[in-house]
Design a protein around this nucleic acid. Structure first.
Lengths: 248, 248
DNA sequence: CGTTAATTTGAGACCATTCAATTTCGGTGG
DNA sequence: CCACCGAAATTGAATGGTCTCAAATTAACG
C-alpha cells in the first residue's frame, strides 16, 4: 500500500509536467494519480553526465524533474552539435518508447533529478489513457517544431542572429513554464555550449556575446543573464513564439 | 455503397504508405480497409505550389501520394531554409492533427498527387486503431530524428560534407521506400533547393557539386543523379543510416 | 589559496558569400 | 523543326564573416 505521504510527494514531482500538459489537454485526477503511481525510478546525476548514448538500445524514458539537460550528436571529427535544451517537466527521450536504438546523446547540463520509467510501461499508459497520450503526442510534435526552427537558426542566420534567437527561445520557454519570471536569472550555460547549440566556435560566441552586451541588449556575467531589451533582441533574432506553440 | 473497383483503387494509392508502415507495425486487413475508406480528398498540384503556409490555421493533414515535396521556413530577410524533403507515402504535416496553427511552409518540389484528410478524422482513426496510431507515432518520431540530423548537418559540417550527407540521405530513403533502386535516377532538385536545404548559397553549392563530380563520386546532369562511389560519399558526409530508423 | 575550467584577446588564414556576367538547359510558339 | 525565352547552371573576382591557434586573464571550487 502506498502511503499518503509518498503519494503526495510523487504528485509534487510532476507539477511542472502537469502544469505544462494542462495548458493544452485536460487531465482528470485519475490521470494524475495513475501517472504518479507508475513505477518511477528516481535518479540524480552530476553535470555533464550522459543520460543516453547514441547507438545504445532504448530501455527507459526519462523525465527531467530538476535541472537542465540537452541533446547532442557528435560528428566524425569530434565536433559536437547541441540539438535542444530541456527544462524541468520535459521528457528527454520520449522517442525511446517506440524506437529501438538511440540516435543521439543526452547530457545533463547542470545537476539533474530525473524520473525514469521503463518504455513498455509508458506505452501501456499511453494506450490506456487518451489524455496522457495526447499530452505526450503534443509534446513530441512541439519538440519537432523546435528542431525545425533550429535547422533554420543554424542554416540561415548569422552569429549575432543565432545567439539572439537562442536567448529568446530559452527565455520564452522558461517564462512559459513558470520556472523563471522571464528575466532568466541563473543562466548556467557555458559559452562553449552556446557555441555548440548555434553551430559556432566558442571564440566567436564570446565576441558576439560581448557585442550584444555593449549594445545594451543583455547583461550576462557570473551565470546570470538579464534581457535588457527584449524587443530589440527578438527583432535581431527574428524570433516569434509561434513555433513553441505555447497555446496548443 | 462503395464499389469494389473504387475500393481496390483506393487501396492502391496507399501501397507506399502501407509498405513503409508494415516494416515496423503489423496491419490487419481491417486496418488497411478502414484507412482506405476514410473520406480522403485527392488533389494534384503543380511544382512550387504551397500546400501549407506558416501562420494559417490547420484543418487537414496531407499524405504525399506521388511526386516530391519539402518543408521550409522563411527568415526575416527573405532567405529560405528547407527543413526536410518528402517522398511518396509520407505525411507532410502530421503535426496539423494536433496543433492549431502551422509553424512552417510546405511546398511541392515536383508535380504532386496528394491525399487530403480532415484533421479530426485522423485523430478519430488514431484513437480507434492502435496499429495505425503506432505507425503514425513512429513516423512522427522518425521525422523528428531526421530534423535533429539536419541540425547537425548545417551546424557542424562544411559544404562538401553537408551536400554529401544530403545525397546519402535521399538515396537511402528512396532505396528503402522502394521508390528507387538506390542509384537515384531522376533527381529533380535544383541547386538552389540543395543550397536552401544545406544552409549554403546556390553559387557555392554549384562549385561543391562540381568538386564531387570531378572526384568521381557522383554523376549529376540533366536531373539525373548517379552515386558512383557510395562508400566514399558516405565517409565524406559522415553518413550513418541509424537516424533514419529503417528497421524500427 | 591553489588548481582547473571558463572567458577573453589578437592576428592571420580560409571557407563561403556577394555581385555580376555568361553559358547552358528546358520548354514553347511560330 | 528551329528560334526564342526564362530558368537553371556556371564562372570570376573581390569581400567578409567565421575559424584557427595561441596566449593571457578571470572565475569557480574544494
Amino acid at each position: 500500500m502506498i502511503s499518503y505521504g509518498a503519494y503526495v510527494s510523487n504528485l509534487h514531482h510532476f507539477q511542472p509536467l502537469f502544469k505544462r500538459w494542462e495548458r493544452r489537454v485536460p487531465l482528470t485526477d485519475e490521470d494524475r494519480s495513475a501517472w504518479a503511481e507508475l513505477p518511477w525510478g528516481r535518479k540524480t546525476v552530476a553535470r555533464d553526465a550522459y543520460l543516453t548514448r547514441e547507438g545504445e538500445p532504448t530501455k527507459v524514458c526519462t523525465l527531467l524533474l530538476q535541472g537542465l539537460a540537452f541533446r547532442q550528436k557528435l560528428v566524425s571529427d569530434g565536433a559536437r552539435q547541441i540539438i535542444s535544451f530541456h527544462i524541468p517537466g520535459e521528457f528527454l527521450d520520449i522517442q525511446n518508447s517506440m524506437l529501438e536504438v538511440a540516435d543521439h546523446n543526452v547530457q545533463a547540463l547542470s545537476r539533474c533529478t530525473l524520473g525514469v520509467i521503463p518504455k513498455d510501461v509508458l506505452v501501456q499508459v499511453m494506450d490506456a489513457r487518451p489524455n496522457i497520450r495526447r499530452a505526450i503526442w503534443l509534446d513530441s510534435l512541439i519538440d519537432s517544431s523546435v528542431f525545425r526552427e533550429w535547422v533554420v537558426n543554424v542554416g540561415r542566420r548569422d552569429a549575432r542572429e543565432r545567439i539572439a534567437h537562442l536567448l529568446c527561445e530559452l527565455t520564452s520557454r522558461l517564462k512559459s513554464s513558470g520556472v523563471s519570471d522571464g528575466a532568466l536569472y541563473d543562466f548556467p550555460f557555458t559559452q562553449e555550449q552556446i557555441a555548440d547549440a548555434t553551430g559556432l566556435t566558442a571564440v566567436h560566441t564570446n565576441r558576439t556575446l560581448q557585442a550584444l552586451r555593449k549594445e545594451g541588449l543583455i547583461k550576462l556575467s557570473h551565470s546570470q543573464l538579464t534581457i535588457l531589451d527584449w524587443e530589440a533582441l527578438a527583432a535581431i533574432g527574428d524570433f516569434s513564439e509561434r513555433y513553441l506553440h505555447h497555446s496548443v
